[in-house]
Amino acid sequence: MSGVLSIVLKRLGLGLLTLLIISILIFGAVEMLPGDMAEAVLGQGATAENLAALRAQMGLDQPAPIRYLDWLSGAVVGDFGISAVSGASVAETIGPRFRNTLFLAAYAAVIAVPVAIILGVVVALLRDTLFDRVANVATLTSISSPEFFLGYILILYLSVKTGMFPAIAKLNDGMTFFELLDRTFLPALTMVLVVVAHMMRMTRASIINLLASPYIEMARLKGTPAWKVIVKHALPNAWAPIINVIALNLAYLITGVVLVEVVFVYPGIGQLLVDAVTKRDFPVVQACCLIFAATFILLNLAADVGAILTNPRLRHPK
């Protein structure tokens, strides 16, 4: 096992390093602002006192490397500083919204992952049939549609015209779990549509790839029944690609959520990020970007580690 362990550790280290570089990138990008953050936030009409006050508040009088270390050490414990616009704590603003976003992504994932994998496997087994071609066209269409197109179609037909589901995903305190599910059904469905299409195609491709391996042919030539070929010979080798597909799409869900949240006016971190970008509220932008990037990197990391752990060649070294 030590071989696997060292590979996993190496991969983890690489993930951390990437995250560190990304944090420098996110911090450094803001440093590239013409003027500084205070000028950008307050705009042209700012007085010298206002600027100075804001600079002091944001600690802009310090040199960049020190501010970076401050920012990073804060970020590690969840302290992202103070919003340049509202003056509220960034962490407090982001906290509940991040939970909402995670809820929405989880909601979509719970529906999308099983559906997509089952459909993907079915389509792979039925490849080159009519069903496969129809599925190909349908998934391509779904992938090609911008999220807001799907979202507005769903609003138009499932909410405005038929009134089955609420169009706006406003959340209140004290909603029951069932109400919550009902409120967020349309945004979740929008994401499910896109993600299922992506996942189905990826699952199909990796299963077909797998079924073309010589050992699958060998199993068939040994007279193994079809179901056993799949369960005993294909599946143990399919974990890596399947884990990979799931992780990539979860990562996609986390970021694809931005547009969906805006369409459905859902109080998540994506909408917050868009607002912050328009208002040029840099501490919030930095925090949001770091959170998104970290989630993305972690999921990719999880996929790679999963692939390593399920690889028989690595599990049983020479």
């Binding site: 990304i22 990008a29 931005v258 912050a276 998104f292 990037a293």
Partner: peptide, 15 residues
């Protein structure tokens, strides 16, 4: 590529 493209675009556009 380890930063989601939309997020990256938003960050750069904000600046």
């Amino acid at each position: 590529m380890s930063v989601p493209s939309l997020i990256f675009a938003l960050l750069l556009l904000s600046i």
